[in-house]
Design a protein around this nucleic acid. Structure first.
Lengths: 211, 211
DNA sequence: AATTGGATATACAATATGTATAATCAATAC
DNA sequence: GTATTGATTATACATATTGTATATCCAATT
């Protein structure tokens, strides 16, 4: 416990800048070969122009750095638009919008691919990502419930929700992404999500025409 | 170069048994927590009752062991049934059959989950798995082509193929698997694949009723 | 001028993959 | 029976990585 302590000013901004430089270096490294294989704190530190010890000083551990990188990427990914999408009166239009938002999100920074792989080496980081994905599932559950109202069985709703959850996941986007623009992937997934919803309703499954 | 060499008999079967014991130990370890995180050659060797050096003797490297484990699991996974499924005269029935075969395959050994994660730490092992997955894509391409004949645009066929490829992948199965029996996942995916095919055909998209 | 706090330098521990060399020991050949 | 072969083991070493500990440097602040 220090006798006299002092705060902010030049000191705080300097450390904040260091922190951002490390996060940027980590993201750059993940973007480089889209793999977590060569992601070591040593390389990240050199890339950021600091010592490995500084990385531990700022993030505590490898996992801490990965989470910081993810949060930084997520903050710029446009997910804040989800709120207004969910506020749309037409739940089907809202679903289309949500699909589009996530397509944009997965596409906006290639480093996301490397982060998704990190689940393998660090199970606890994996659970952190799973928790964030569960929010998406809640959104989808709400929308499907609104679309089907009470015309579908619980089990059918669950099926539709899980299918749409899979269709809007990163692995699915990554599988469809090569050889397609983000917009093309988006349209493809929107159509597939419509089919998933229609399949859960016993009546009039051919209700919607494209465009 | 040995002056006099000799082959087989007790020697060959003994080494073969050692090899199988190591593979079984590796699979058991992957099955244990369904993660590649704690998969080290040291632990595998102890589990198999041999030295770590023996593992290197038999498989050359960590990757070699992983590939051997995968091949061993694949050999018992029922994929040989794909041949007769593809020989079915009705391509839609064949597609249903292929979906069912892969559902059974992904479900038959939990160690597959750990192996899929290994892509992250070892990119070259990843390319080996990708190559094996591409065979599945070829099967699907053939079936969708037969189903749509020439009534669908190339692009629409490509969309259906890629969607079905995703729907029959391990990540999709793993996402739907908790809280569902293998048969339930299978039916769900078959329905989704039907929708993907129907969406690629401009005419009469409501041709099939379930059962 | 003294102190604070972030960054650095240096060292150490633990775990992992991979390589090298000699030794063990049962199975086989002469 | 004796020598040889080949898989396995024992031991050692090199390298990379995560994580911890301690003392030091230096600019910013009191």
């Amino acid at each position: 416990m220090p006798k006299r302590s002092y705060v902010s000013s030049v000191r705080a901004s300097a450390t904040a800048e260091t922190r951002e430089r490390i996060i940027a270096a980590g993201a750059r490294l993940l973007r480089k070969d889209a793999s977590i294989a060569n992601f070591s704190l040593d390389v990240v530190a050199k890339e950021a122009g600091v010592t490995r010890l500084t990385v531990y000083n700022q993030f505590g551990s490898r996992r801490g750095l990965l989470e910081a990188v993810f949060d930084d990427i997520a903050r710029q990914g446009g997910l804040f638009e989800l709120a207004e999408a969910m506020a749309l009166p037409d739940p089907r239009a809202a679903l289309d919008r949500v699909v589009a938002i996530f397509c944009t999100f997965w596409a906006h920074d290639p480093a996301i691919g490397g982060l998704n792989q990190a689940i393998a080496t660090d199970p606890e980081f994996g659970t952190a990502l799973v928790a964030r994905n569960e929010r998406r599932r809640e959104l989808v559950t709400g929308l499907v419930t609104r679309i089907t109202e009470s015309r579908a069985a619980k089990r059918a709703v669950q099926d539709a929700v899980d299918l749409i959850f899979v269709l809007t996941s990163y692995p699915t986007f990554a599988a469809l992404s090569p050889r397609r623009s983000t917009e093309e992937v988006c349209r493809l997934l929107q159509t597939a999500c419509h089919a998933a919803v229609d399949a859960s309703m016993p009546d009039a499954p051919a209700g919607r025409k494209k465009k």
